[in-house]
Amino acid sequence: MNVEHEDVEVNGIRLHVAEQGSGPLVLLLHGFPEGWYSWRHQFAPLAEAGYRVVAPDQRGYGRSERPEEVTDYSLPRLVGDVVALISALGEERAVLVGHDWGAPVAWATALMRPDLVRGVVGLSVPPLVPAMMPSPSVTRHIYGEGFYQVYFQERGRADAEMAADPARFLRRVLVGASGDDPRPDGPRIWTIPEGSTSVDSLPEPESLPDWITEEDIAVFAREHALHGEHAYTGPLDWYRNIEANQGLMSPFQGRTIDVPALYMVGTMDLVLAMRGVPELRSMLTAIVPDLRGDVTLPGCGHWTQQERPAEVNTALLDFLAGLD
């Protein structure tokens, strides 16, 4: 994979980016707990089709800088990183593709700065305008104190549990939230039982599915470990801003996302098990009037572009061709 790496100064911090190809800019925004490497199957197909493909480690992740304050990870700051990155790359506009947490960042950038966004693609997480996620004060009452987003609010607890052995955590979470989860009862909400930990709440897989290898896990773990005991503090601080994001994004209440858009999700994705998501999906065109596609991937879990790279790449290339 002929991918080039560099550091770019944006929005007051240093971001690491991986890049391949030339042409119209496509920014690939990863989610939790991943990094640029989660897009390894997208670089070559998109670059060969004539696009400049750039995947950053977003703030707090991998080789990128980790600001220390919780408030440094608010949604407007994350959008600011994308805006500044487009400019730092010498471009005027980009197509944004986001997965998991990267999807809210992509949706929010299209909402706040449509002048910079040629098109937006969300994998797994649909747009919940304006703050993109329900707040912990709401989800606590729906799912309880063990709901993972609520559990993450205490700074230092989940951070230490995950950083103690990144490979062990990654192996469990990547298989546990995939379409290959050996438990047979379909997608489920991630909850941490009282007395357990974020890592121990996920079973150790007997083997890895075909779409992920021990080498892949080692790459993720090695990149995360660059931040030592704070390997997951930055990434988890994104969750610790969900409540504050409600107020920060309130000026955009009532706005729609008006750029061309595509949404993709797997039938085994845990996001589909969350209350209100099926209803939100049924009304996507009210939020995203220029929705060019709503793609369902049977049997696919949460790690969309890694589990089903061929189908994701085909959908992306079709969407991009429509924009061109």
Rank of each mutant, 00 (worst) to 15 (best):
Arg14Asp: 11
Glu19Thr: 13
Gly21His: 07
Pro24Ile: 10
Leu25Pro: 10
Leu25Ile: 08
Leu27Asn: 12
Leu28Ile: 11
His30Cys: 10
Pro33Glu: 03
Glu34Val: 03
Gly35Met: 15
Gln42Ile: 11
Ala44Pro: 02
Leu46Cys: 03
Glu48Trp: 08
Ala49Met: 00
Asp57Glu: 09
Glu68Val: 14
Ser74His: 00
Gly80Thr: 03
Val83Trp: 05
Ser87Val: 12
Ala88Ile: 12
Leu89Ala: 15
Leu96Trp: 03
Leu96Pro: 06
Val97Arg: 07
Trp101Thr: 11
Trp101Pro: 11
Ala103His: 00
Pro104Ala: 02
Leu111Tyr: 08
Arg113Leu: 05
Gly119Tyr: 09
Leu123Arg: 00
Ser124Phe: 08
Ser124Cys: 14
Val125Asp: 02
Val125Pro: 04
Pro127Leu: 08
Pro127Asn: 11
Ala131Gly: 03
Met133Gly: 05
Thr139Asn: 00
Arg140Trp: 02
His141Phe: 09
Gly144Met: 02
Gly144Asn: 02
Phe147Val: 07
Tyr151Asn: 02
Tyr151Met: 01
Phe152Asp: 06
Gln153Tyr: 10
Gln153Phe: 11
Glu154Arg: 04
Ala158Ser: 04
Met162Asn: 01
Arg172Phe: 01
Gly176Pro: 07
Gly176Tyr: 03
Ala177Pro: 01
Ser178Asp: 12
Ser178Ile: 12
Gly179Trp: 01
Pro182His: 05
Asp185Ala: 10
Arg188Ser: 12
Ile189Val: 15
Trp190Ile: 14
Thr191Tyr: 09
Glu194Ser: 15
Ser196Asn: 12
Asp200Ser: 13
Ser201Ala: 14
Ser207Asp: 14
Leu208Thr: 11
Asp210Pro: 09
Asp210Thr: 13
Glu214His: 08
Glu215Asp: 15
Phe220Arg: 03
Ala225Gly: 14
Leu226Tyr: 09
Leu226Arg: 15
His227Pro: 04
His230Arg: 15
Pro235Phe: 07
Pro235Thr: 07
Gln246Ala: 12
Gln246Ile: 09
Gly247Met: 07
Gln253Asp: 10
Gly254Leu: 09
Arg255Glu: 06
Asp258Arg: 13
Val259Ala: 10
Tyr263Ile: 00
Leu270Thr: 14
Arg275Glu: 12
Gly276His: 05
Glu279Arg: 14
Leu291Met: 03
Gly293Leu: 06
Val295Pro: 06
Gly299Lys: 10
Gly299Glu: 07
Gly299His: 11
Thr304Tyr: 04
Gln305Asp: 08
Gln306Ser: 14
Ala310Ile: 09
Ala310Arg: 15
Val312Phe: 02
Asn313Gln: 08
Leu317Thr: 07
Asp318Gly: 06
Asp318Cys: 00
Phe319Leu: 14
Ala321Pro: 04
Leu323Cys: 07
Leu323Thr: 06
Asp324Ala: 15
